[in-house]
Computed example of a mutant assay.
Amino acid sequence: MIHFDSWKDLMNPEIYIQYGGFWLVLFIIFAETGLFVGFFLPGDSLLFVSGIFAKDIIAETFGSTNSDFLDTTILATCVSLAAIIGNEVGYYFGYKTGPILYEKKDTFLFKKKYLFKAHDFFEEHGRLAVIMARFLPIVRTFTPIVAGIVKMDKKKFFFDNVIGAFLWSFMLIFAGHYLNELFRQQFGIELKTHLEIIILIIVLITTLPIIIKFFITKKEI
């Protein structure tokens, strides 16, 4: 059973990997990309850290293939599938209940402002938003819902959904795995022992576009 000492632990991907392993990682990716209540869950940092532990995760779940590349590929593929399913659920939810969400009052798990941000992002970037949103925290949770609300063509959404899911999953998981290998071999540094710094850097990088967009919009107003 996962035990959280503070709310900060909710954003710590290592805890999910340590206590839940492979299946919990898949569920979190599904929830973070398909359920509006999952916007606070770690996405990018979870994938990157999962890449660092990819060999251990696969070995504990299915047994090691004795190939770092194959183990990492299996993990990235499964995560991609979870992300695809999550977005399809989000799209269907938006397609069926969209108008109701705009009338829903804010709660702890639902913030209407995030829905509006995702809508503006979708309107600005169109179909490309489905792919780009994968790399933006919060926005990726609400973009498929907005795509459903505006009745985006289902086949086009699915196509963009698949591309975005595989790009996001493979890039971050492989980056985590092979950067860890690079730092260990070239500099004798284990990224596993510096996860707090790594997570902080990833959070700053992924939220920077949102922060810049916020200040630009505020300045224009």
Rank of each mutant, 00 (worst) to 15 (best):
W7R: 03
I17G: 07
Q18R: 09
F22D: 08
F22H: 05
L24S: 03
A31P: 05
T33R: 06
G34P: 06
G34W: 08
G38Y: 05
F39Q: 04
D44W: 07
I52E: 01
F53M: 14
K55G: 02
I57G: 03
S64P: 04
S64K: 05
D68N: 07
T72R: 02
I74Q: 06
L75C: 08
A76L: 10
A76Q: 12
Y92W: 14
F93I: 14
T97W: 11
T97E: 11
P99A: 01
L101H: 13
Y102A: 07
E103L: 09
E103H: 05
K105C: 01
Y114R: 06
E124D: 09
E124C: 04
H125P: 01
L128V: 11
R140I: 04
F142L: 02
A147S: 15
G148V: 11
I149Y: 04
D153S: 14
K155Y: 03
F166Q: 12
W168D: 00
S169H: 14
S169W: 04
F170S: 12
Y178N: 03
E181R: 12
E181I: 13
Q186I: 11
Q186C: 08
E190C: 00
L191A: 10
H194N: 14
H194W: 02
I197C: 00
I198P: 04
L200S: 15
I202W: 00
I205C: 08
L208K: 00
L208P: 01
P209G: 13
I211E: 01
I212V: 15
K213E: 14
F215M: 07
F215L: 14
I216A: 01
K219F: 10
